[in-house]
Design a protein around this nucleic acid. Structure first.
Lengths: 151, 151
DNA sequence: TCAAACTGTGACTAATCTGGTTACGGTTAC
DNA sequence: GTAACCGTAACCAGATTAGTCACAGTTTGA
């Protein structure tokens, strides 16, 4: 499979922005540095989140990005649905099967139903975690590592 | 996303084979006709299922394929795990993020954990359906359509 | 013995998507 | 008016997709 890591990129960027609760703007350059990527790619990924109301972009000098709503209200399901738009983890037949066969007549719609259910289960798990949850766990991991190093 | 439809192809082929409970052999040509595809592609997909003990292939004239175990004992999770080998529906970062950033230091492992949980939820849903279940529903749909047509 | 019917597999194709990059126009702050 | 941004189009190499052809190896059965 060649699935895209745009969801991972978007979640990372949103958590990065969530660090500034006041909603200060961060540039795509700054976000790209955290991702070890480049600003144009970040703008492309965040552009979709902007269209769907997850982030706000401000143009011009001193412009940049901020969350459009509290990090508690953005779940991984929201991000996945937007970043990897209609991504289907379990595609059905590439083209319709043979209708002269009883399996061919019915398997396509059965699989559509089964695979949609499975995808929904995945998305419901994603919906249980918010950007705020992840940021909290980032900070917790960081404190744990500092403590382990004896600071 | 560009996920493969090999799971769908494999499930279809297995349900096709499950029609012959006695385990009679069916050729890749016959399976390809049901899929409206071609024998070489079918052999490649089924070849992986053979390596993992889901089907048996018999070479030579009068050769072909049959299920290696009862259709009740083959779930969609089994098929997916084999047909789309280590397919990952939610990949993490394409390359590791910047460790000079607190988000970069921790987001990768957090996402690995979250995405693995989500994938597991999807697979558990797939595990609830067997090839025998699907074949039963194929026959049920067929009978329903015949009844609707007034036979 | 030999032809026919299979599986197994390598090689190739066109199409599509991936992350990455450069370039440049539009917008805004200072 | 310049510098720092976003927005977007265009392009890249690499990977993967389903699909196809070809052919070697195996087995049946006439």
């Amino acid at each position: 499979m060649v699935a895209s890591s745009r969801t991972a990129t978007a979640v990372h960027a949103l958590a990065f922005l969530a660090q500034w609760q006041g909603g200060e703007l961060r540039s795509s350059q700054a976000i790209a540095e955290s991702l070890d990527s480049n600003p144009a790619f970040v703008r492309r990924v965040l552009g979709r989140l902007r269209e769907r109301g997850l982030v706000v972009a401000v143009e011009g000098a001193a412009g940049g990005w901020r969350l459009a709503k509290p990090a508690e209200e953005i779940t991984l399901r929201d991000v996945h649905a937007v970043a990897d738009d209609g991504a289907v983890p379990l595609p059905v037949h590439a083209h319709p099967p043979n209708r002269n066969c009883v399996i061919g007549r019915h398997m396509l719609s059965l699989l559509e139903s089964e695979f949609a259910d499975a995808q929904r289960a995945m998305e419901e798990r994603l919906a249980q975690t918010s950007i705020a949850d992840l940021l909290g766990r980032v900070y917790r991991s960081e404190r744990a590592e500092e403590a382990a190093r004896g600071n």
